[in-house]
């Protein structure tokens, strides 16, 4: 048995390396196709049969580029719901902290120390959060409405801009939460019960970190694939 098919599959896997699960699936499927095709064209000359099967199948770069368009669209569409879920996760953490303040008898209005900063941070927190939610929802709807088929780079960029705007607004909201929590906790002596609001802020920071990592991973993937395949 020659190595023509194995070499071809290796090349295809390299072209599809921007999406490893897709690469594994496609290579397995294509291998079955090429082996069947080679068996059909075989008249004793294995090398010639494999060469013919590969020729009929087409160049790896063209095939990978066609897969890339669908894969990128699918991944870009998935960012929208992730943004909205993370925004809702931050909201849940915020609400849990406020409920804890209420349950333990802490004032739930602006912090006692530096009241002006508290008022500004509270207003900023609220509007930044609403902005994150609205832009996140818009990004989701916009990405969902993108047509399958040829990749529309302009629409894809707009979709990422909306997700990035939602992410930026959420960072602002979480920073305001950090300031508010710090002001609230700095006014009283240290207690182990402070770990609860600190942990809830920690969850918000972790969620925002996950969102940034996700957006960065998808945009890097899109940039790599569009450059490689000139999409």
């Amino acid at each position: 048995m020659s190595h023509l098919i194995a070499n071809y599959l290796e090349q295809l896997a390299h072209e599809l390396s921007f999406d490893r699960s897709l690469s594994r699936r496609v290579c397995e499927e294509v291998e079955d196709h090429l082996r069947q095709s080679a068996e059909r064209h075989s008249d004793g000359d294995t090398i010639e049969a494999e060469r013919r099967a590969i020729e009929l199948f087409g160049p790896t770069k063209i095939i990978a580029a066609q897969f890339a368009a669908t894969s990128l669209l699918k991944r870009s569409r998935a960012v929208g719901p992730i943004v909205v879920l993370i925004v809702l996760g931050v909201f849940a953490a915020m609400k849990a902290r406020v409920a804890w303040y209420a349950a333990t008898g802490w004032t739930t209005s602006e912090p006692a120390r530096f009241p002006d900063i508290g008022v500004i941070a509270y207003a900023f927190d609220r509007y930044a959060f609403y902005l994150a939610l609205m832009t996140g929802l818009c990004g989701w709807v916009y990405a969902f409405r993108m047509q399958s088929g040829a990749l529309d780079k302009t629409r894809l960029q707009r979709s990422f801009m909306l997700s990035a705007a939602a992410g930026a607004a959420l960072i602002g909201s979480v920073l305001a939460d950090i300031i508010l929590t710090a002001l609230r906790l700095s006014g009283v002596g240290w207690s182990t019960s402070h770990l609860i609001p600190i942990a809830s802020v920690g969850i918000e920071v972790a969620l925002v970190g996950a969102l940034i990592a996700r957006i960065h991973a998808v945009t890097s993937l899109v940039a790599t694939a569009t450059l490689r395949f000139d999409l």
Partner: peptide, 25 residues
Amino acid sequence: PEGTVYPVLHRLETSQLLSSHWEKS
């Protein structure tokens, strides 16, 4: 060109017009 059919199958599956599963030949 035989290879062009597979991306089409993948796209149709993403659009939920097709479903797929692995089988043993």
